[in-house]
Amino acid sequence: MNIIVLMKQVPDTAEVRIDPVSNTLVREGVPSIINPFDENAIEEGIRLVEKHGGRCTVLTMGPPQAEEALRRALAMGADEAVHVCGREFAGADTWATSYTLAQAIRQLGEFDLIICGKQTFEGDTAQVGPGVAEQLGIAQATYAIEVQIEGRKMRVKRVLEDRYETLEVRLPALISVVKQINEPRHPRLKNVMAAKKKPITVWGVDDLDARPNLIGLAGSPTSVVRIFAPERHHKGEIIEGETPVVVDKLIEKLRQLEAV
């Protein structure tokens, strides 16, 4: 079983500050972590390899300091890491990112499963995973909360807004995972030490078979006009108590609002 996990290093905060002038993320002084959903993806990759054998390779596109995040993935138990790194890749939108990652995956050779987090904490688009699957022309199942593999088939339970859905897909495939799929492990000491000896392959623009006009800022059809935090919606009012009392209160409320 060859598993490739897509991961990204992000600033360690759910509420990233945004520079109001440049509309870019302010990274100074914010420690970096692995995108939390990607930690679930790594955990799932490691567990599947523990169960079915094979190798778990983590893949990231990012600046040089993303090596730190790859080391942590290796310390969690991933077998090897690939780092797509270079100025030319910077400024990529989800389209260019998907293309670049797909090219890197092609270059890695045969694989059975690609796992990624459902979205990143900073971009929140949830587009890169599906984009990679499309680029590679393989099946995809997003928002996975449970996976079972039997031979070349995989059963995936997906979390949708109002229900669960179970799909059967043929490998190779891509899944994106939600937080509830597992509890990511803390790197144990032996793996922290072993990770130091595991290989991290760095691919620059010359190492990757990627068309220059499809990568980085140049390859990105999206341009960001403005980034802003969504307004907080007020929580609805919750009426609590015994059912008859609650019903009376509700009717009264509706009357006050002249809704009935």
Partner: peptide
């Protein structure tokens, strides 16, 4: 460096689990 990396892993475990 090895000790520092190990201590960081232990600290994380202690803070988050214990």
């Amino acid at each position: 460096q090895d000790q520092q990396d190990i201590f960081a892993a232990i600290k994380e475990f202690c803070d988050e689990e214990l």
